[in-house]
Design a protein around this nucleic acid. Structure first.
Lengths: 137, 137
DNA sequence: CTACACCCGGTACCATACTACGGAGTCAAG
DNA sequence: CTTGACTCCGTAGTATGGTACCGGGTGTAG
């Protein structure tokens, strides 16, 4: 089975070596087996895992939330009911983020449209107005 | 014209007084007029502005990016061309975030579906696998 | 068998985004 | 006209998420 050193994992995932070790300390990346010298031996999947972490982080999930997302899987240690409840909560959260982003996008599209056809009466701040409704917390 | 003290703005927007002043220092909230005593007099719109900042932050935008979003408007100081270019870049950014969130949501939905019909062969980490493709940076 | 890139753990430092504190002045209800 | 909540500014401290550096050991190509 193919394994990678920490440096290769880091390069493939587009992060620094220090970041990989940091994610390990945070419980986001499983502690890999070591060889006699103490060198970490990573399975190739670790690369995808780290790439996922980066993407989720860009979308505003905290490392704690990302850990929870990564723990969502069907295994014998947790009941199906429990997994479904937590996954459903995440789904709702994500749906709401998508809805808000869509409103922001629509507002910006109206702005560029107004711009294109000779600066209509768009003043004030359109993106801000787009979120006036739809408040919920 | 109705104005608000900093404390009222903060309460209505759901943040602390210190946060309002912090956003002012960061250029996210315009410096309001003061009365003779030095007290800030905010227009009511400031509340929406701060609520927008909070939402955008939850979606993973940095304060710097949020400032850029809030500056996108048609005014005489910038050319239409410039506004459109910057707005288009933000639109692309947002579209990509939406696409990634949709893939995450779909993965979680597959997980709960598998869960519901008596734990199928879903092992490993479905949300992670959902993003295996669609890499771009 | 040595050079050089790589890995080890530990600690210290950094940027971002707040949050708290202190000492003093202000406002309004009673 | 006092009292208590609110405001002022400045500075310092916190949490998160890394990033950098250290002295030392490891691995391998020439």
């Amino acid at each position: 089975m193919e394994t990678l050193t920490i440096g290769k994992v880091a390069r493939l995932a587009g992060v620094g070596v220090e970041t990989v070790r940091f994610y390990e300390r945070q419980g986001l990346v499983e502690e890999p087996p070591r060889r006699a010298s103490g060198y970490r031996q990573y399975p190739v999947e670790t690369v995808s895992r780290i790439r996922f972490i980066r993407r989720a982080k860009e979308l505003g999930f905290s490392l704690k939330e990302i850990r929870e997302l990564l723990e969502l899987r069907i295994d014998p240690k947790t009941t199906c009911e429990d997994i479904r409840r937590r996954a459903d909560a995440k789904i709702d959260d994500i749906a709401e983020r998508i809805a808000t982003l869509r409103r922001m996008k629509a507002a910006l599209e109206r702005l560029t449209a107004a711009c294109r056809r000779g600066r209509g009466p768009v003043s004030g701040c359109p993106i801000l107005e787009a979120l006036e409704d739809g408040e919920k917390s």
